[in-house]
Simulated scan of single mutants.
Amino acid sequence: MIAALYVETDGAYFGLPGVDPWDVTRDARTYAGPHPVVAHPPCQRWGRYWHGAPNKPHQYKLGADQGCFAAALNSVRNFGGVLEHPKDSHAWRYFGLAIPPGTGGWIKADDFGGWTCCVEQGHYGHFSRKATWLYAAGVDLPELKWGKSGQRIHPRALELHGYEKARRIGWMAMIGGKDKTRIRDATPAEFRDLLISIARTAVRQAA
């Protein structure tokens, strides 16, 4: 069994055999084991606009996530598994984790047996490149698809704006409506399966 922490209600981790999803209704901060975890702690207060929207800055404090990242980090360290956050997350420096190279490869993250790397979800089914930092502990470390993923150009953007602008604005700029944030933040099935497969190796290590 794998515990999927801080996941979207009825999202990618629901309905999978051997996966116990913890959405907002279950409060993943209270997870007490014993299964390895895949953790997606909220990133809003750790990212580029941690302080608030550009037109309304300084609304929030850095890291004011009600203890979600700290709890997720402890779960990975205590039970094995993997945690993901966007590239350049301020949580890495805040918690004393080493900054992984953008070119890829696992490096030692801390003195708790953790490892970290940078990988683009574009290699694993995301619309955009979506560079992501992983923190893993107590698991086998797989060789991933390192480096930059391929540029995806929306055909309508190409038609309207030409190659240079279409390349610059990217695919996600052409996805509108109220679901834009959800689509951008969603974990592609291929990347989800990769994270689950990493977490499952903690079971083998413990055996």
Rank of each mutant, 00 (worst) to 15 (best):
G176Q: 14
L16K: 02
L16H: 07
S128R: 00
N74T: 15
P17H: 14
L160N: 07
P57Y: 00
D185S: 12
S75R: 14
H154Q: 09
R152E: 03
Q44S: 12
A137Q: 09
G104D: 07
F79D: 08
G177H: 01
I175P: 04
L97H: 03
A137C: 15
F191S: 02
L134V: 02
L5K: 01
V7L: 00
R77F: 14
D140E: 15
I153E: 00
T103N: 08
P34R: 00
W133E: 05
L195E: 02
P41I: 07
R156T: 14
K148D: 15
H154S: 14
G105Q: 00
H58D: 13
P34E: 05
L97A: 13
Y13G: 04
D65I: 12
E164R: 12
W50H: 08
R93N: 14
R93D: 10
D88H: 11
A4P: 06
P57G: 06
F191E: 05
R167E: 08
R168P: 03
P36G: 10
T9W: 10
C118A: 10
G114M: 05
N74Y: 10
Y13M: 04
A91W: 10
P155Q: 00
G104R: 02
G122D: 03
G52M: 10
D179N: 06
W171G: 11
Y31V: 08
K165G: 07
P42V: 07
N55H: 14
D65G: 00
W92Q: 06
D65C: 03
A4S: 13
P54Y: 09
F112I: 09
R77V: 11
Y31R: 07
A131D: 02
G176C: 07
H123F: 13
V38Q: 04
Q66L: 13
D179F: 07
F14Y: 11
R182M: 12
D185C: 14
E143Y: 02
M174Q: 12
A28N: 03
P42M: 04
H154P: 11
P155W: 00
A173M: 10
P17S: 11
A206Q: 15
N74P: 13
E8L: 10
P54W: 07
I198S: 00
L194A: 01
S75G: 14
Y135D: 00
P54G: 00
P188G: 08
G104V: 05
W46C: 03
